[in-house]
């Protein structure tokens, strides 16, 4: 059974034909075209939401193991979508499909699609360059992983990769990214000190600034606070909530309170499958599936 989840689907109908009513089909997208599709969708759905990315029937294999099973969902633009589930459920694996991180390791295979809008391209198509994908879709990792270079060089690195050579522009963008990551005031006098001299929370904000510098459209957060203390965690969460004004955010978290605090939408994954997807408030109060309920109430995971 193909299960499509749509955020405007309060009663979780797991029927592909029903879901088809809500999700614009590929054909529809084609006929409307990128710009038209977007405005169309704005009218047809509630509030701010336009679709930034749509996952269709995604299967992922590595080394003969099927890690993701027929995952389909939509990612709303300028919202935070949380991926939750017990360890090993495939949530990180799923996240890393968005920027083709799996391409780095041999023996991995994607089936299905992740369509990125407004371009309307399948990110997983073999002729799409993963390197370009990663420039447009940034990632913040589980443990802060600054390069052993200066604070400035860490943030400037993405710009240098994209071929920016004007010193003035680099300086401006580095400053802006550091301000956006709420780190500027703390580091403005020590930009040329090694990044490893920062505290863990500062390092993670530096990694966020590094990602923001190239103005990505989507930022993927892979359990960004799991290595941090509660105070640093709070500042990162605050930052994530502010950032959604400018970018679309996908966040993997093992911490359900965190998902509740930062996200508008939540996807619950279990054993490589997307079990349930919907508005966070509803998932946490009225889960439609037994597995979701068990997980949320702490019966497993």
């Amino acid at each position: 059974m193909v299960r499509h989840f749509h955020i405007d689907n309060p009663t979780m109908k797991n029927d592909s034909s029903t879901a088809g009513v809500h999700i614009p089909s590929a054909r529809a997208i084609e006929s409307v075209g990128a710009g038209g599709f977007r405005s169309d969708l704005l009218r047809s759905t509630s509030k701010s939401s336009a679709i930034k990315a749509e996952v269709r029937g995604l299967d992922f294999h590595y080394g003969g193991f099927r890690a993701l099973k027929d995952v389909s969902m939509q990612v709303q633009a300028n919202e935070v979508t949380a991926l939750i589930g017990p360890s090993g459920c495939g949530k990180s694996t799923f996240l890393r499909c968005f920027n083709r991180m799996h391409d780095l390791y041999p023996g991995s295979r994607y089936d299905g699609e992740i369509r990125l809008y407004p371009d309307d391209v399948n990110l997983l198509a073999p002729d799409i360059d993963p390197v370009e994908t990663r420039i447009r879709i940034g990632m913040v990792f589980q443990k802060p992983n600054p390069f052993p270079k200066s604070i400035f060089e860490n943030v400037a690195y993405g710009l240098r990769i994209t071929g920016e050579k004007r010193r003035q522009v680099i300086h401006e963008k580095v400053e802006k990214a550091l301000r956006d990551a709420a780190l500027w005031d703390e580091v403005k006098d020590r930009l040329h000190q090694p990044a490893t001299s920062l505290s863990g929370g500062q390092q993670q904000r530096l990694c966020i600034a590094r990602t923001l510098a190239t103005e990505p459209e989507i930022v993927l957060f892979d359990e960004p606070t799991s290595a941090l203390d509660p105070i640093a965690t709070a500042s990162i969460e605050e930052l994530i909530i502010e950032l959604k004004e400018r970018v679309t955010i996908l966040i993997v978290t093992h911490n359900m309170q965190q998902a509740g605090r930062v996200s508008r939408y939540t996807a619950f994954m279990y054993l490589g499958e997307l079990v349930e997807f919907g508005e966070t408030s509803r998932i946490f109060t009225r889960p439609a599936k037994r597995e979701t309920e068990n997980y949320i109430t702490g019966r497993f995971g």
Partner: peptide, 20 residues
């Protein structure tokens, strides 16, 4: 993790090797 950080920013294999 350092390699992934660089790849995640869109560095190509050779750039990751040369720069990091």
């Amino acid at each position: 993790t350092i390699r992934e950080a660089a790849y995640g920013l869109g560095a190509s294999r050779w750039r990751v090797t040369r720069d990091h």
